[in-house]
């Protein structure tokens, strides 16, 4: 059974680490979680990013957060990737599978997946 004692152990483990807070990452992944995004499937996309970023050991440089309606509801689920000194990348019609690819190629490898971006859709 899960117990509060396990949380105490997490606290103990974290004591010697610098606790990562929102905004400390070099890369910010923002998932649109308004009515339009949620209805289009943003929840599993958010989960995929939260889990994937942690499992791939990217948590110290990537933060995953949520936002409201980005204004392009027809392209939801929408995910924006912000990186210092780089242009914002807007991924559209995201799925957990595409999220895994973005983590691997873009967040890890630094390679934007052009096919999934809004730029491509509007071109």
């Amino acid at each position: 059974m899960k117990s509060l004692a396990e949380l105490a152990a997490i606290r103990e483990k974290m004591k010697d680490k610098v606790i990562l807070r929102e905004g400390s990452g070099e890369i910010r992944v923002v998932v649109g979680m308004a009515t339009c995004g949620i209805a289009a499937g943003a929840r599993p996309v958010l989960n995929a990013f939260v889990e994937g970023v942690n499992k791939e050991g990217l948590a110290d440089k990537v933060t995953v957060s949520q936002t409201g309606c980005i204004g392009v509801c027809q392209f939801e689920p929408v995910v924006e990737v912000f990186e210092a000194d780089k242009e914002k990348v807007t991924y559209i019609k995201m799925t957990p599978e595409k999220a895994a690819e973005v983590i691997e190629k873009h967040l890890k490898g630094g390679q934007v997946i052009a096919d999934y971006t809004i730029t491509k859709a509007l071109a």
């Binding site: 899960k2 509060l4 396990e6 949380l7 997490i10 606290r11 974290m14 606790i19 948590a59």
Partner: peptide, 27 residues
């Protein structure tokens, strides 16, 4: 609030904590 009482400064969105919450609810 009960979690926070044990966690102290550790934020709820710390990944280990999020996993604990998911597992706790599943159980």
């Amino acid at each position: 609030r009960e979690l926070r009482a044990v966690l102290g400064d550790v934020p709820l969105d710390q990944y280990d904590v999020m996993q604990w919450i998911g597992d706790y609810l599943r159980e």
